[in-house]
Lab assay of single mutants.
Amino acid sequence: KTVEVNGVKYDFDNPEQAREMAERIAKSLGLQVRLEGDTFKIE
């Protein structure tokens, strides 16, 4: 899975870890996480 923030992509081998990281980043920035294919987009 991939986490994308402001056009910057971070790859994770563990999908659960990617989801947790995406949620943590989104919460700290006051944004939403949206799953698009294999990418968690933070917008």
Rank of each mutant, 00 (worst) to 15 (best):
K1W: 15
K1Y: 15
K1H: 14
K1S: 12
K1C: 15
K1N: 09
K1Q: 07
T2K: 12
T2L: 07
T2I: 12
T2Q: 09
V3W: 03
V3T: 01
V3I: 10
V3P: 01
E4D: 08
E4Y: 13
V5H: 09
V5E: 01
V5K: 02
N6E: 07
N6Q: 08
G7E: 02
G7V: 03
G7K: 04
G7F: 04
V8L: 09
V8R: 12
V8Q: 10
V8M: 11
K9H: 07
K9M: 09
K9C: 15
K9A: 08
K9P: 05
D11F: 15
D11H: 15
D11G: 11
F12M: 05
F12H: 03
F12T: 02
F12Y: 08
D13L: 10
D13S: 11
D13M: 09
D13I: 09
D13A: 12
N14K: 08
N14F: 08
N14C: 14
P15I: 12
P15K: 07
E16M: 10
E16T: 10
Q17F: 08
Q17A: 12
A18E: 00
A18H: 00
A18Y: 02
A18C: 11
A18G: 02
A18T: 01
A18W: 05
A18I: 03
R19S: 05
R19M: 07
R19T: 03
E20D: 09
E20Y: 13
E20Q: 12
M21C: 15
M21Y: 15
M21G: 01
M21W: 15
M21E: 09
A22C: 06
A22K: 00
A22T: 00
A22N: 00
E23C: 15
E23V: 11
E23G: 06
I25L: 10
I25M: 09
I25N: 00
I25T: 06
A26S: 06
A26H: 01
A26N: 01
A26P: 00
K27T: 10
K27F: 10
K27I: 10
S28Q: 14
S28T: 11
S28C: 15
S28Y: 14
L29R: 04
L29W: 07
G30W: 04
G30M: 05
G30R: 06
L31Y: 10
Q32W: 09
Q32D: 07
Q32P: 09
V33M: 09
R34L: 08
R34Q: 07
R34F: 09
L35K: 07
L35C: 14
L35H: 07
L35Y: 12
E36V: 13
E36S: 06
E36A: 06
G37R: 05
D38W: 06
D38P: 04
D38C: 15
T39G: 05
T39E: 04
T39L: 08
F40R: 00
F40V: 02
F40Q: 00
K41A: 03
K41W: 07
K41G: 00
I42R: 00
I42E: 01
E43T: 12
E43W: 13
E43Y: 14
